[in-house]
């Protein structure tokens, strides 16, 4: 049994917030597009000297000179070097130093939780990425939230006896909605919606890549509920231990586990009685167990629930829910 995504996406700060970083002439061309087209817009791809590409799910078209969309590159509006520099200045707010750390990770977060992916010449130092220079392309990714995405999962997320949150791992290939799902799970626990608890759960999000909360200048750009604290940009393993020591959480939410350090920190959390909600890249539970270090977590019963996602019926399709031994519950 699979559960399709329940709702259409809801814009966070609105795509116009993301498009505000573009030069005025490009903004005008985009704003002249039909509202239904803009509602489907997922990415604006900017490459110097190349047509400006708009991506809508599986469809892709160019922005046409003078307005509208086209599939013909000669008719498309081309991005100039000056326009790219303008976008970079707007995105960094004239402060490259303020986004150094984000640039090393390859993206910059905008108000509204939108993100700008950056490509150019990578400068390394001792094998580590130090910065990106000669930036040649940018990818503006429009952020959208799916409030209610975790609602069909409520019966499996809490202990049936005392309502205590259960450690949950969301497994899927990329772009199936893992992060979006854990974000909504964090919100629902924080708002005491999963199961009515007399003492509602405190949630801490360890947001290493600023993807879950989309923090911008210290404020989350997504609804996370009233009982959520965010450690933004914090390495997962250190953050998990820091949160347990200092923020007394009932639930710790983080993203994309995979390293030995993550395993140790999750086991530490499990021993401390803190539920961990997190994600991993894999297409199935068996695939996840084959990844380095992950079998140790499975054997230790670190997670009581495994949720498998796919794009089969749209991003966020819930394929199945498994218990800590890998038995299907759906």
């Amino acid at each position: 049994m699979s559960i399709p995504p329940p709702f259409r996406p809801q814009e966070t700060g609105g795509w116009n917030q993301a498009l505000a970083v573009l030069p005025v002439d490009l903004q005008r061309l985009l704003l002249a597009l039909d509202d239904t087209i803009l509602a489907e817009l997922e990415e604006v791809r900017l490459r110097v000297g190349q047509p400006i590409e708009l991506r809508f799910g599986t469809n892709s078209q160019y922005l046409k000179q003078g307005g509208g969309l086209t599939l013909m590159p000669p008719a498309a509006a081309v991005l100039s070097q000056a326009a790219l520099e303008h976008v970079m200045q707007q995105v960094t707010q004239f402060s490259l130093y303020a986004v150094e750390e984000e640039l090393r990770k390859g993206f910059i977060t905008l108000p509204g939780g939108h993100r700008i992916g950056v490509a150019g010449r990578i400068v390394t130092d001792g094998g580590h990425i130090r910065s990106i220079r000669s930036i040649s392309s940018l990818n503006i990714r429009i952020a959208r939230a799916y409030p209610g995405m975790a609602t069909p999962l409520r019966p499996w997320l809490a202990d049936r006896g005392d309502g205590h949150p259960l450690s949950t791992l969301v497994i899927s290939p990329p772009q199936c909605g893992k992060t979006t799902l854990v974000r909504d799970m964090a919100r629902q626990w924080s708002e005491n919606l999963v199961t009515r608890r007399r003492s509602p759960s405190k949630v801490v999000i360890i947001d290493e890549r600023s993807e879950i909360a989309g923090m911008f200048e210290g404020r989350p750009q997504f609804a996370l509920g009233p009982r959520t604290d965010v450690l933004d940009g914090c390495p997962k393993a250190e953050g998990l231990l820091m949160a347990i020591r200092s923020l007394s959480p009932d639930i710790v939410v983080t993203d994309e586990i995979g390293k030995q350090g993550d395993v140790e920190a999750i086991l530490e959390a499990a021993n401390a009685g803190v539920a961990v909600i997190t994600t991993a890249h894999a297409s199935s539970l068996a695939g996840w167990r084959r990844r380095p270090h992950m079998e140790e977590l499975f054997q230790a019963h670190a997670f009581a629930r495994y949720i498998i996602l796919s794009r089969r019926r749209g991003p966020g399709t819930i394929e199945c829910v498994l218990d800590g031994d890998g038995r299907s519950l759906t």
């Binding site: 707010q93 004239f94 402060s95 130093y97 303020a98 750390e101």
Partner: peptide, 11 residues
């Protein structure tokens, strides 16, 4: 700039 990494206009 160096310690708070505040965006320039705000700083």
């Amino acid at each position: 700039v160096e310690y708070h990494a505040k965006p320039l206009p705000r700083a």
